[in-house]
Nucleic acid binder design. Structure first.
Lengths: 147, 147
DNA sequence: TAAAAAATCATACTTTAGGGTGATGCATTC
DNA sequence: GAATGCATCACCCTAAAGTATGATTTTTTA
């Protein structure tokens, strides 16, 4: 049941992507064909666009796997307090903070904006009861959330 | 430094992808053009292929980031390099940094000025070959200088 | 399916960190 | 006694981090 729902969602995304492809192809056909692009250029553009599109969808789909990969590490944690429970994304950000990455670098890595990372960090600090990243790392290690 | 590496990685992936695109386009040109596919079909195939390619790369990229995050945690190597030797005061500052204190708090604690702490931190980063306090803590732990 | 939680992003602002440069005093050492 | 290393401090500037507020979208869950 749950699995089928997930599968259905993936199918939906794929279906939407395919529909999007057809639409884009049509648009390209009507707009770009009036210009004298070489076929190579034309195909290159198409390829690049859909490659980027694919990377976007791919990284989005891959996120589920990432969270699933991280969670087992955190299950070793002793503290199950709901108050201090971090979401998957927050843990991911915290991990990168612990590795010394700047917010901008984390944003680039996770393909999101700097503001999103800032929001995450703020929430992390709030949940951990700390006020900066070094304290967060220190606290997380004390709570066995890291290492 | 770290930023440039990350950027270079992305550029590399993108460059490789583009090179792959060109190769594939050529292959398509030589092989498929003898058959009489309609342009739409042709474009559709290209689009689907590169979308899938993109999804593959996208999910792979996401997964690699995580692995890169987790790996450093296991590499608790013991390094006694003289190059990374910190002075007594610098170690003291580093310890307080690891405990999440701000420069101002450390200055108050050690009864020196904020500027002095800043000078110490700059020297610490230089000696450890890092560029901020979180990286310094991470590196110091890896070098068994802390904990 | 509706509600809750998680993830995303923006804008504007303040604070802290970090880089560069230069300087002083005080030991130790060659 | 000149050189070196350490600790101290100042000023100026840029970059990064953090706060507050409000919002949308997606996902999960009851």
């Amino acid at each position: 049941m749950l699995k089928s729902i997930i599968v259905n969602k993936k199918v939906l995304v794929f279906g939407a992507a395919l529909a999007f492809i057809l639409i884009l192809v049509k648009i390209f056909e009507y707009f770009f064909f009036h210009y004298k692009f070489s076929l190579e250029t034309y195909l290159g553009i198409i390829a690049v666009i859909f490659l980027i599109l694919g990377i976007y969808f791919g990284s989005k789909l891959g996120r589920k796997n990432i969270v699933a990969n991280i969670e087992p590490q955190n299950s070793a944690s002793i503290n199950n307090n709901t108050e201090t429970d971090l979401s998957g994304r927050e843990l991911e950000v915290l991990l990168n903070i612990a590795n010394g990455l700047t917010n901008q670098e984390i944003a680039d890595k996770l393909f999101v904006s700097l503001n999103t990372i800032k929001t995450h960090t703020t929430n992390i600090y709030s949940k951990l009861g700390v006020k900066n990243r070094t304290q967060a790392v220190s606290k997380a290690k004390a709570l066995n959330l890291l290492n």
